[in-house]
Structures are given as C-alpha cells and as structure tokens.
Design a protein around this nucleic acid. Structure first.
Lengths: 187, 187
DNA sequence: ATCCAACTGTAGCACCTGCTACAGTCGCCG
DNA sequence: CGGCGACTGTAGCAGGTGCTACAGTTGGAT
C-alpha cells in the first residue's frame, strides 16, 4: 500500500496544509489533488483509499498540535498553564489544527469510521500532552489528569461556539474564569 | 415561500427527528423525503431551499433543547445545577440535540452559511437558558453568566471527545470536577 | 361552468463523488 | 536485448447531489 514512503509523506503534509485551510468536511480528492499538483488517481494509488488519506492527514495535524504543546516552556503554576495552553490553541498557526480536530470529531459523532477511531486516538494523545505540560508545570499527578480533562473540554467548547471571536475580551475573561475555576480543584 | 404553514411545521418536526438520528452532515433530501413520506420535490417546494430546511431543523432542535432546560426545577445551588444541566444534556432524549448542534457548529466553523448564523443564534438562546436556570437556582447575576459560559463550553467538549462514553465513571468524575471548579468561581 | 392559483408527480439536468479499467511509460535486473 | 514490476495519464463508470422544467390535477371563488 505504501508504494513510495517519502512521496506519501510529502503529500500527507501538503494535504494537511490544504485541509487546515479548506476544512475537512467537504474535502474531496480532485480539488485537493489539483491544489498539491497531482491527480486523484495518484492519491488513491499511493494512499489506497480516501479514508486512509484522511486518517493520515488527521494524524499529521494532531502531531503538529501535540508538538506545539510539548514545545511549551513549563508554566509557573496551574493558572498560568491554562493561559499558556490557550495561547497555543488559539494561535494562528495551531488554531486550524484544533478546528480540524473538531470537524473530525463531528464526523465521528455517529461512530463513522475512520473518523471515530482516529479521533479517539488523537484525543488521547492531545490529553496526554496537556497532562505532561501540567506536571512539568508543577501540578501534582492525579490533579493534572482531572484538570486536563476540564481544560480540554472547555477549549473545545470555546472553539465550537464562536470561532470568529478568538481574541475578544469576552473570550479572554472566559479563559481567565476557566483558569480560576480549575485552580480551585487543587484545594 | 411558506405555502402551507402547518404542513411545513409538521415536516419540520419529522425532518428534525430524522436528522437527530441520522446526523446532519451527510443529510440529503431524497432519503429524508422518503423517510417522512414525501419527495425532494415537495420539500423544496415548501421550504424553498435545502439550506432553509436545515435552518428550520436546527431551530426546531434548539427549541426542544432549550425547552428541556427551561422545564427544569430550580437546583439547590450552583454545584447541583451543573449536575442537573448535565442530566438534560446527556439524556437519551436530548443528547441528539446537542449532537446536532455540534454537527452544525462544525459545518459553520469556516463561516459557511446558513450554519454559522443559525449556530450563533442557537448558542445565544442555549446560553441564555443556562443563565436563567442558574439564576433561578439562586446564583447571583454576573456570576451566572460567567459560569454558564464555562459549563456550556465544557459540556460541548465532553460531547465532542467521547460520545459513546456517556455515563461512564470517568465522565461522571469530570462533571463532578467541573461542578467543583465552577462553584469556586463564586468565591 | 370557468378560471385561476395552489399544489404535486415525472423526468431530467448539470455537476460532483470515490474509484477503476486500460493502456501505456519508465527504469532496473537478468 | 528481453522482460518485469513500479508507476501514471486518460477516460469513464455507477451512483449521488440540489434543483428545475413541464405537465398536469385539484379546489374554491366567480
């Protein structure tokens, strides 16, 4: 199935870039292929199936987002960690990654594959990166897991409810409230 | 455009039922029409456009969810309110409504109409119903708004990340943690 | 009875979807 | 050289999409 690994990887990256700006839900092979300078015929030959392509794209997008969180310097405390994590999630570079994740999760809501499976895996890795950042920031182990769950869920909700509002004062207060609320879990 | 109001309303309800179980993203007119005993031709005649039909369906679904929240007895305090609201959101009857909302929100993420507009309106009404329930439960006004924002966002995240897990102990602990965290906002 | 407007069934349009059959072309190994 | 396997362009298939043109068929007001 993997005929030419490096070409496949290059196409995966380009397809991910395309999906990040065009969206996943309406994605179809011919426009994607044209955008990255090939044909649907070639994509199917090298990926086997559209579903396999999509799975690769989601994995790649997830890799980027997780890497961004991993690259974060430790935060001073739990409250600061919420803000730092949010600054990654809402950043122009990585916001499309979480947007793509949301689209995939919506597609997987009814259990449709490959979305449901890939999304579950992506969420696990994403959550783990949150936990890792929290522990690196001095948050005790059991608390870190519980806080990460709340933080992740709230971030997804923020993303879902008002995507164009990123950066408004209302959103900033919501994040500040979230950090206050989560910090209270430690007591 | 609204030729026969009552038939249109009846079809809207039936279409909503259909969308609630079949999903919104892949929705197409012919299967829907067949399921409710008519034809795509008729749907288009009475609704004008698929987008108008979808908007009506989303509005109806939102009505049902908001009505369910409004029908709630006041909770004893903020923490209890989180649990009571969650019991509505996750209930077998209304969980599909929030699922549908999530699908619409995902479709609207890139600003595509009618989804983006309808979703914004639905979110406002939904949030307002949360605030109303919180104030009826004795939560002071400014706090109620801020808490509702966090609660709504977290609920959406829960829905998004692991739909089949509804009812598991992990999810219950997450909701309990959320109620603890939000309750701390009052101090 | 007439006429008009509201309604509806049939058939089809133009377009798009993932995917594939066929016919090559290319480079490497013998 | 022959041949073989990996690769790729062309064309097309079968099915689906929202939507519409056309030809009725009602039912009620005149």
């Amino acid at each position: 199935m993997a005929k030419d690994p490096e070409r496949r990887e290059a196409w995966t990256r380009e397809a991910t870039d395309y999906a990040l700006e065009q969206g996943l839900i309406g994605l179809s092979l011919r426009p994607l292929a044209a955008a990255i300078g090939t044909s649907d015929r070639m994509l199917l030959y090298h990926f086997g199936t559209k579903d396999d392509l999509v799975a690769a794209v989601l994995h790649d997008s997830n890799d980027r987002a997780v890497a961004a969180v991993s690259a974060l310097d430790p935060s001073t405390d739990l409250r600061a960690a919420v803000h730092d994590l949010w600054s990654v999630v809402r950043s122009a570079e990585f916001e499309p990654c979480t947007r793509l994740y949301v689209e995939a999760a919506a597609l997987g809501l009814l259990g449709r594959e490959p979305y449901a499976g890939v999304v579950r895996e992506a969420n696990e890795r994403w959550l783990r990166s949150f936990v890792t950042h929290l522990t690196r920031s001095g948050v005790a182990r059991p608390l870190a897991g519980r806080a990460a769950t709340i933080i992740d869920a709230a971030f997804m909700g923020f993303q879902l409810d008002a995507p164009p509002d990123v950066g408004t004062t209302a959103r900033k207060r919501a994040v500040a409230d979230l950090s206050d609320a989560v910090a209270a879990l430690g007591r």
